[in-house]
Amino acid sequence: MLIGLLQCDDVAPELIGRHGNYPTMFQRLFQRVDPDVRFRVWRCLDGEIPTDPDAVDAWMTTGSKFGVNDGHPWVDELAAFIRLLWRHGKPLVGICFGHQLIARALGGAVEKSARGWGVGISFNRVGERAEWMRPWQEALDLVVSHQDQVVTLPEGARVLAGSPFCPAYLMQIGDHFLGVQGHPEFARPYSADLMALRRAAIGEERVREGLASLAAAADDELMARWILNFIHHARSRPPE
């Protein structure tokens, strides 16, 4: 499977030597689950927006330090490409910023949460069991790093998992779009270093809570398996 990775940020220079950049993180994770998965990267943050929905088998959007409401031209151009993928029925999975941009591009709304930063491991309950959720479990615990959240779902979306802190954590739209607020590609050591780097912005108390949460296991490989199952399911749909 060839996945088009829509890269929307770079790892901070202070951390890239130890952890690599975001495409490397995605490659590491998904090749642990399926060695045949390959990625082709478009640097959307530099204005490199694809135009051909059929260039790859499926698409994935990374996280970003930028916000979907910040008014950057490349974000609006990427939103237009997301709408093109929607119209063509192409599989797309949005991670964090990508999850939020899918919602906004299709008519939903994203806002900075009054609950503050989500950092460390987030603990979520899966409220609806989809057929691609194999192997099945009721919890979905992933590393997070975000302030914004989806507050209004686009038409046709349904929430599959969430928590009191982030109710719209995992959403599916139709048969071919999936968004998750968490970062399955983030290893826990990277989460710790990222919190330390952003300590002043996040706040000391929230950083302490986030670091403590990293003692828990993360469902990163499970989420990667679910994502690949979802893509296979979306690609096997009969044409409309």
Rank of each mutant, 00 (worst) to 15 (best):
A130E: 15
L222H: 04
V150N: 05
M1E: 10
G179D: 04
A12T: 09
N21A: 02
H176G: 09
V150D: 00
R104Y: 10
R134M: 15
Y169S: 04
A224S: 07
A224H: 14
R235S: 10
F66Y: 14
L160Q: 04
R198D: 07
A168P: 03
R188F: 06
W136C: 09
S236W: 12
L228W: 06
P73S: 11
R28S: 12
R38F: 08
D57T: 15
G203N: 06
R134K: 11
T24H: 11
S113Y: 12
K65C: 09
W132R: 10
G107F: 07
D46M: 13
Y190E: 07
L160E: 10
A192S: 13
Q172C: 00
L6S: 03
L5W: 07
F26T: 04
D220I: 00
P189H: 11
P167F: 00
I231A: 01
A139G: 08
A192W: 05
D175Q: 11
A103W: 01
I121Y: 09
G162Q: 04
S236T: 13
D219N: 14
E205F: 03
I121E: 03
I3H: 06
G89S: 00
K65L: 09
A200H: 08
G120V: 05
R28I: 02
L5C: 03
I121D: 07
R235L: 15
L5S: 04
A161M: 05
